[in-house]
Design a binder for these strands. Structure first.
Lengths: 241, 241
DNA sequence: TTAATAGTGTCTATGAGACACTATGCA
DNA sequence: TGCATAGTGTCTCATAGACACTATTAA
């Protein structure tokens, strides 16, 4: 061990540190496709490009708390599903200075997504086009409502891709899917969520069997309203065990 | 947005930052069980407890580079499978100061594991007992060779548990299992690795079928030596496509 | 020749996809 | 009464577990 390393080991307070930030992928569904909320950068660097909402981590703040603060301050969202994704630490990810960023995934039900968009005029919806290839950083595209490709700032394209891929991976065996639904929902809505995330059609009887056999769904006894045909049963998610 | 937030947003260099570290779970197999390499702490805090090898992240160092440096300096290992696990940011995880740590998982084949243990006298083997319950921080036990429970420093028990659970989750559908084997290995050795990580016996014909059908295994044409019975075919891992 | 494990053939159980069917509420 | 979707019965197919069997090498 060199003398420098020893000193750094002994008194790291004496050495300069990277800055630490959190960035949030605010993910929802829009027209049957995954979509994220982005902010347009007005200043250097990457002015004019689109970025994930983020912020620096305070000395007296956990990572979760920092993520929740960003969620509150930049999107006006009080509470939702939040999960740590991955920590990005490339040397040149921000040209101003060394910033390490802990990417998080927030899942927004349709209403929360719409409310945030309505309440914060700076936010923009980007539809995400995530191909099936690639493990961590496939060539994701963020599209505006008009279908234009939005240029993304920093390494935020990687974060967006990772968010969707992580969600895909967990969807089958975990309960994350319910975080994108309102409290009461039909089996068709649940299937729509899965199909949107997986970007593939699913078999109806098999899907229903799997979900019902899992024991996470409690029928509410009520039915959806406002259809011009047979209304479907409404279910509620009940935590396993 | 408050004035303070605005300033922090604009000039984070002016505000104190958490220190940033990496910690490494050096995982191998020992007598058919997962095992990790630990260092005994000699100083405050947690003196006398056992800790994962770790170090601070330099300003000019990526997270991967910091992890590789720790691997080299503290375990004498030049190269092995390395993966980021999770970032731990609780406020009180280190009583000296605020330290956020990016936990990593390093997988060591038996020989590398033994070499590190031999070359670095400070390192201790701990057999890991990871129950099947719990998603992130089950009640893991680290046991010395004599079967005594080793007291762990900081939140390192959580990191150890997470490492094994992550590995369990990925073992089936990814190629991580091969990182714990030498370049040439028998199907029995591969099955032993899977059984040790999953902590459950597996069906031999089914396991062989699955592995061979996957197309990741190339027979070398040679056979293992030194057995007193029929020697098994040696295989090599060939990256898919 | 025997011991001990490598390696395989085949039956069964399980779960998913396919597809057609019945059920039901509203216009 | 008919439409459109909810919801189901059942066949087939793919895959994993069980179990017994054959193959092969060294001592």
């Amino acid at each position: 061990m060199s003398k420098t390393d020893f000193l750094a080991d002994y008194d790291p307070a004496a050495y300069p540190r990277p800055a630490l930030a959190v960035d949030l992928v605010l993910l929802g569904l829009r027209d049957g496709r995954p979509a994220a909320l982005l902010l347009k950068r007005t200043r250097h660097p990457h002015a004019g490009r689109w970025a994930l909402p983020g912020g620096f981590v305070g000395l007296d703040e956990t990572l979760d708390a920092a993520a929740e603060r960003v969620l509150r301050e930049k999107a006006g969202i009080a509470q939702t599903y939040l999960e740590q994704l991955y920590t990005f630490g490339a040397l040149d990810r921000d040209p101003r200075m060394r910033i390490v960023s802990v990417a998080h995934l927030a899942l927004l039900p349709e209403q929360t997504f719409a409310d945030a968009l309505e309440g914060q005029p700076d936010l923009m919806v980007a539809t995400l086009d995530v191909p099936w290839t690639g493990e961590t950083g496939g060539p994701i595209s963020a599209l505006s409502r008009r279908g234009e490709t939005l240029p993304l700032a920093f390494d935020h394209a990687d974060m967006l891709a990772l968010a969707v891929l992580r969600l895909r991976g967990k969807l089958d065996y975990s309960d994350v899917g319910f975080a994108l639904l309102p409290e009461q929902f039909t089996l068709r809505q649940l299937q729509d969520v899965h199909e949107a995330i997986l970007a593939t059609p699913l078999n109806k009887p098999a899907f229903r069997r799997r979900m019902l056999d899992r024991g996470w769904l409690a029928p509410t006894g009520t039915r959806e309203a406002g259809t011009s045909f047979r209304p479907a049963e409404l279910y509620r998610f009940t935590r396993p065990r």
